[in-house]
Amino acid sequence: MSGFDVSVILGALPFLAKGLGLSLGLTAIAMIGGLALGLVIAIVRLSRFRVLATLAALYVNGFRAVPLILVIFWFYFLVPLLLGRPVGALYSVLIAFVMFEGAYYSEIIRAGLKSVRPGQWQAAQASGMSYLQAIRLVVLPQALRKMAPLMVTQGVVLFQDTSLVYVVSLHDFMTSASIVANTQNRIVELYVFAALVYFALCTAGSTLAQRLSSDRQRAH
């Protein structure tokens, strides 16, 4: 090897930054969409509607049993077929990520809701609240505090998972780094740089999760 050439990285920074933007944007949308979907799934799974709860459980266990890459392939080919027209890889991937993350977030939310003492459900019920009121006013606010660190941790995992869009050639940070690495023939520089950026961002996220979790322990 012939020395570590930083100028390659500097020259490619705008292109790499655009890729990082896509990675972060994909993470944000998948997180928000996944949380919303996960909340609905969790509430349905804990509800009295047996059939719906079973369907929700099948959804969650199904998505959790299958690799994300396979899910990306599924939606990459399925979405255009369902819509009857090409929509581009980005939209297919967005849908795949939201549905996939929804399954994982629903498990975090469900565990959070279940961690609230049954007496709290009973107290809310006893005062005449409906199921949804009890969740919204009494159970979810308590559960959110417990879930926050896990949600951030899952966000870090999700950010790392966005690198898998490499398989459908979307130009996220990972793919952009790989493109520069191959076109400039500077594999070592680009992959080491990419690893450093991922490491820095994920460490920041993990640290935030740890702080949230120790804050919570101190509060009790």
Binding site: R117, Q122, A123, Q125, A126, S127, G128, V138
Partner: peptide, 17 residues
């Protein structure tokens, strides 16, 4: 729920929020 709202309940472990 409507009828429950008319009956007060006090629990062993308080169950304040």
């Amino acid at each position: 729920a409507r009828i429950r709202a008319r009956v007060g309940m006090v629990f062993q472990h308080f169950e304040l929020y």
